[in-house]
């Protein structure tokens, strides 16, 4: 294996937004798909509850994101909520355990896709992040991205101490989807709180630093089969991907070159980085289709300054 000499690495060029509508739509493809799944999941719940949607005489999707039943047979449940309930020292019925196991396996294979493809709060935090970029706002304080793992741990400890699911009871995410589907109230204020926090106080503050549910799926995501594949030989280290990534610390070029993919579980598989890469160095692939690049063992310095925003 021979290292790619620095001199042969092409000069960095930045992303140029396509001029044509077709090109714009193409580049926004994953974003549009994500909004479709996010809204679609909520719509299935809503339609089943309010308009009695059925398939073959069975309710399409009954319940909400905490626990549900798909097509009248397949139980689904939020594994982190169930984990908290178990930590609170209460036995649960097999149905919800099976539902949690199904989603646990799914997210362990697909990665942290809950955050970018399902969670309704993502639309709120994405909007805040987008506006923040427009107005170029400063952070009020700094926070370690690892804080969320402590919050997650504390959710489990408090569940055990207080005898109720500690995060589930105060979760702004659950309040939001319960509000949207069942109209119970408080959801919009919860979303507004998160929005203001993300917009004015800390960039990617909630999803990137605090949310214990995201932390849980991030831990699961370490095992994921579905990955953002990285082609080191064409990458110019222009840093455009890092600029748009909501979890920029996961795009570590050295590590990505070594394994041929983004390995960190915190990556939400949102695919913002894929269309923005001017060299097409990034795409989705299964773990075993990603290969370490030949020059990976050779340490290199980036060509351009990477604007890494923690």
């Amino acid at each position: 294996m021979s290292a790619i000499p620095l001199s042969t690495r092409r000069a960095a060029r930045l992303y140029t937004p396509p001029a044509t509508l077709a090109g714009k739509l193409h580049d926004a493809g994953y974003l549009i798909l994500r909004r479709i799944t996010q809204v679609g999941v909520l719509l299935l719940f809503f339609g089943t509850l309010h308009w009695g949607w059925q398939v073959m005489g069975q309710p399409v999707l009954r319940g909400n994101l905490s626990a549900s039943e798909l097509l009248g047979v397949i139980p689904l449940a939020d594994p982190f909520a169930v984990l908290q309930q178990l930590a609170s020292g209460h036995a649960l019925q097999a149905t919800v355990l099976l539902g949690a196991a199904i989603l646990l396996v799914f997210y362990a294979l697909a990665g942290r896709v809950f955050c970018s493809w399902v969670c309704p709060m993502n639309m709120v935090t994405d909007l805040a992040g987008w506006l923040r970029g427009k107005f170029d706002l400063n952070n009020l304080f700094r926070l370690q991205r690892g804080t969320r793992y402590w919050v997650m741990g504390m959710a489990l400890v408090l569940s055990a101490l207080m005898g109720v699911a500690a995060f589930e009871w105060v979760s702004p995410i659950s309040m939001l989807h319960r509000e949207i589907i069942f109209g119970v109230g408080m959801g919009l204020s919860a979303a507004l709180g998160i929005f203001i926090f993300d917009l004015l106080i800390l960039k990617h503050g909630w999803c990137g630093h605090l949310c214990p549910l995201g932390a849980f799926y991030g831990l699961l995501g370490n095992a994921a089969l579905l990955r953002v594949r990285f082609d080191d030989s064409s990458c110019t280290h222009c840093g455009e991907c890092v600029r748009v990534c909501p979890e920029p610390q996961v795009l570590n070029f050295k590590k990505a070159a070594e394994s041929g993919m983004v390995t960190a579980g915190a990556c939400t598989n949102c695919a913002r980085c894929v269309p923005i890469c001017p060299e097409d160095s990034l795409d989705f692939a299964l773990r075993w289709d990603a290969h370490p690049s030949p020059g990976a063992s050779q340490p290199r310095t980036p060509n351009s300054t990477v604007r890494n925003t923690p």
Binding site: T48, L49, P59, R62, G63, N64, S66, A67, S68, E69, A77, D78, A81, V82, Q85, S88, G89, H90, L92, V96, G163, V164, A165, E168, S174, R178, I181, F182
Partner: peptide, 17 residues
């Protein structure tokens, strides 16, 4: 009530049924 608060996941499936 205490056990109910800890065990109910607030999914609303009872409500729908």
């Amino acid at each position: 009530e205490r056990d109910f608060a800890a065990t109910c996941i607030k999914c609303g499936q009872c409500v729908q049924a």
